[in-house]
Structure formats: C-alpha cells, structure tokens
Computed example of a mutant assay.
Amino acid sequence: MKKKLLFVCLGNICRSPSAEAVMKKYLKLNHLESDFLCDSAGTAAYHIGERADARMRNHALKRDFQINSIARQFNPQIDFDKFDFIIGMDQQNISDIKKLVRNSDDLKKISAMTDYCTEFINYNYVPDPYYGGENGFELVLDILEDACLGLINQISR
C-alpha cells in the first residue's frame, strides 16, 4: 500500500510545492516512486489555481527539481482521510492544520518538515522565502533536500 504524503505551507506556491518536487525526485532516484504518493497544499486560499512562484521554480530548476503542481488549499474533509503524513513547513502552518483536526488519528498524522532533517538540525521550520532575496530560495531548497532524504530514510524502513 502506498504511503501518502502531503506537504503544507501558507500559500502553496513556494515551500510546499518545492517539498513535493524534491521528494518526488528523491523517490524516483531511490526507485521508490511506486511506493509513495506526494501532494502539496496551502493553509490559505490566496493562490488557488496558480503555479508555484516563478523565483522558486527557477531556483528549483537549477537543481533539476521540476515544480509542476498547481496551488490548492488544504481540505480537512478530504486530506485527513487521504494522507498518512501531513507535513507542515512552519509552526504557524502546523497550528492552522491542528485547529482543523477531527480526532486523535488526524493529529497523529501531522509533523514538521524539519523533524526529518539530519544536517539542518538548528532549523525548527522552513523559512518562507517569498519576501526575501535569492539566498532565501536556496536555503529553502537546502533544508528541503535534507528533510526529504531524512523522511525517506525514516518512513521507508
């Protein structure tokens, strides 16, 4: 049975679609793509139907990550049932998702992206690069690469 992962940030145009793209590539490189389903969503409805931020797509492409997802909002009536892991990019995202839980099973599915880091252990969240400069997008990708590899190691055992 496939493990289903949902990555969540605020608007679903920078961090969570990047996490989805990084994870999909790493799963493919490790011949695990048939064992997993990945998606992303935002806690807010700001960018529903839009492609990921062009700056984020460009930085990801330099590392050979394809961000193809279209922004959508987290849907508690569907997503808690569909996904095994709901992974927030920062504490506000996690708090917003936790406000929507229906039961303890929903709550058990929620974690922080940085929980899976093995190198970027001094980060307890993935910083939002939207209002920052070029280095912010690179840092997001650095953290996500580390976290995705840690996540694969933890849940593919």
Rank of each mutant, 00 (worst) to 15 (best):
G42E: 01
V140C: 13
P17L: 11
I97P: 05
L32E: 05
N30S: 15
R102L: 01
K24T: 07
R57G: 01
D39C: 01
C148F: 07
G133C: 04
I110Y: 09
R55I: 04
R72Y: 09
V22G: 04
A71K: 13
Y26Q: 10
R57A: 04
K99N: 08
N103W: 09
L29M: 15
F7M: 09
P76R: 13
D128W: 09
Y123P: 00
A52Q: 08
H59N: 01
N30L: 13
S40K: 01
I87E: 07
T114I: 07
N135E: 15
Y130V: 06
R157S: 14
A45V: 11
T114P: 04
F36N: 07
K62D: 04
Y116E: 10
N135D: 15
G150M: 02
T118K: 11
T118H: 08
T114A: 03
H31R: 14
K2G: 03
F80T: 00
D35A: 15
D115G: 03
V8I: 13
Y26R: 11
S95D: 13
R72H: 05
E50L: 05
P76G: 04
D105V: 12
F83E: 04
N12T: 11
F120N: 01
A45W: 02
R63S: 08
L107Y: 12
K25Y: 06
F137N: 00
L10I: 05
S156T: 14
D39R: 08
R102V: 04
I87R: 08
P127W: 12
F120L: 04
P127Q: 13
I97L: 13
L139N: 08
L149T: 09
A60T: 13
M23S: 07
K82A: 01
H47K: 07
A71C: 08
F80E: 00
F74K: 14
N93T: 14
Y131S: 04
D90V: 04
F120I: 02
A45Y: 09
F36T: 09
N58W: 01
L144V: 15
A41H: 07
L151C: 05
C117H: 01
M113R: 12
D142H: 13
N124C: 02
P17K: 11
K62H: 02
I87Q: 05
D146P: 02
N75P: 03
S95T: 14
F120G: 01
Y26E: 14
L27M: 11
L5A: 01
C38D: 05
D39H: 06
V8L: 03
L5W: 07
G11L: 11
D90Q: 05
N122F: 00
R157C: 09
R51W: 00
F74H: 14
L149S: 07
V101R: 06
G136I: 09
K24D: 02
F85R: 03
K25Q: 09
P17W: 10
D96A: 15
P127N: 14
D79V: 10
I70R: 12
Y116K: 12
I143C: 00
K2A: 09
G136W: 08
Q91G: 06
